[in-house]
């Protein structure tokens, strides 16, 4: 119900995504998905659940979400400076840490358990800002960021049940509902909307903070490793793809933030597949990596399962980069095969 109304006001206020050489769409599209998802989840939870202590637990996340949403909308409308956005994200990460949401232990990953206080602080800040940005970078083709978030909240809902956090599970289910509504429009031909930076930053933030909280809640229980693995699975593809892209840009002597067409979805599109199929494939890859991680975890523990997940990701991206190289030479030859008019 919200989205059609939001679409109508997006055009007059200029909240639209205009095509450029890096964008894969041809017309201006309203950037109202993020606001839609926010309003839908907030209204649903406010109307359905009495405001009591249970709900107030989420006030920190809510404050963060509101700030990121406003920043995202301003960015979608005015293109904010990258350094300003980054500073706001670090401040938010600091705020979340100060409210007690943090990485306290690696839970046996690489044989490491407890962490010193400054390392806890450092890792929490890096992971929150890293995931928020990684998720933002994934929002390049129809249905991808929302698809990953949908699958992520699905896994989180399961983990919340495992942890006995039933109310948290309901919050995640609300997000799933809002994302399904968003996807209906995002994948539509004539009523298309995008989530914009507002949407992707907000979703990344909700997911990383929720993930950290899930791990914290499971601390001391016997399923802590499984929950840690579940959270890592959800964030795995965006985060390691960002690592891959940054490493590659640095290797090429460019800034890691230099915009180009080398993200996972760009590589898949180069194989000639359509956007929606590319999105489905990436969400399937995330699911496949999660399953591989879970199965190997049953037999060999956290460290080996993460190593295997990395191996799968490495093989897939290596093949796709090989295909990208093929495309590069194909264009080289196509240039050569253009007729030369010497008349």
């Amino acid at each position: 119900m919200l989205i059609p109304a939001l679409r109508k006001i997006a055009l007059p206020i200029g909240l639209v995504d205009k095509p450029n050489h890096r964008k894969v769409h041809a017309n201006s599209v309203p950037l109202v998905g993020g606001i839609g998802i926010f309003l839908a989840t907030t209204l649903t939870l406010t109307l359905a659940v009495p405001v009591d202590e249970k709900v107030l637990v989420y006030k920190n996340t809510f404050i963060g979400v509101v700030i990121l949403l406003i920043m995202g909308i301003l960015d979608d409308r005015l293109d904010l400076r990258a350094s300003l956005k980054f500073a706001i994200q670090i401040l938010l990460a600091h705020f979340i840490y100060s409210q007690g949401v943090k990485i306290e232990s690696l839970n046996g990953l690489f044989g490491i358990y407890s962490l010193s206080a400054w390392l806890q602080y450092f890792l929490t800040i890096v992971i929150i800002t890293g995931v928020v940005n990684a998720f933002n970078l994934m929002d390049g083709i129809d249905g991808l960021a929302a698809g990953l978030a949908l699958m992520g909240f699905g896994i989180f809902t399961f983990l919340a049940f495992v942890n006995g956090q039933f109310f948290t599970a309901v919050v995640f289910l609300t997000f799933i509902g809002a994302l399904l509504a968003f996807l209906r429009y995002n994948l539509s031909q004539n009523k298309k909307i995008f989530m914009g930076d507002a949407g992707s930053l907000m979703l990344g933030f909700v997911m990383v903070v929720s993930g950290l909280e899930l791990i914290q809640k499971a601390q001391g229980t016997n399923h802590i490793s499984a929950v840690t693995l579940g959270v890592i699975s959800v964030l795995f593809v965006p985060v390691f793809d960002a690592f891959r892209v940054f490493r590659r840009r640095i290797k090429a002597g460019k800034s890691p933030f230099h915009a180009d067409k080398t993200h996972l979805h760009h590589l898949i599109l180069m194989t000639g597949l359509k956007h929606k199929i590319a999105s489905v494939l990436i969400v399937s890859l995330m699911t496949f990596i999660s399953i591989i991680g879970y199965l190997s975890f049953q037999f060999a523990g956290l460290t080996l399962s993460i190593t295997l997940m990395l191996l799968v990701f490495f093989i897939v991206t290596t093949l796709l980069q090989f295909n990208e190289k093929l495309n590069h030479w194909k264009h080289f030859i196509q240039e050569m095969e253009k007729p030369i008019n010497l008349n």
Binding site: M336, E337, K338, P339, I340, N341, L342
Partner: peptide
């Protein structure tokens, strides 16, 4: 012939 480099 079509004026691509091969044919030229």
């Amino acid at each position: 012939a079509y004026g691509v480099s091969y044919n030229r």
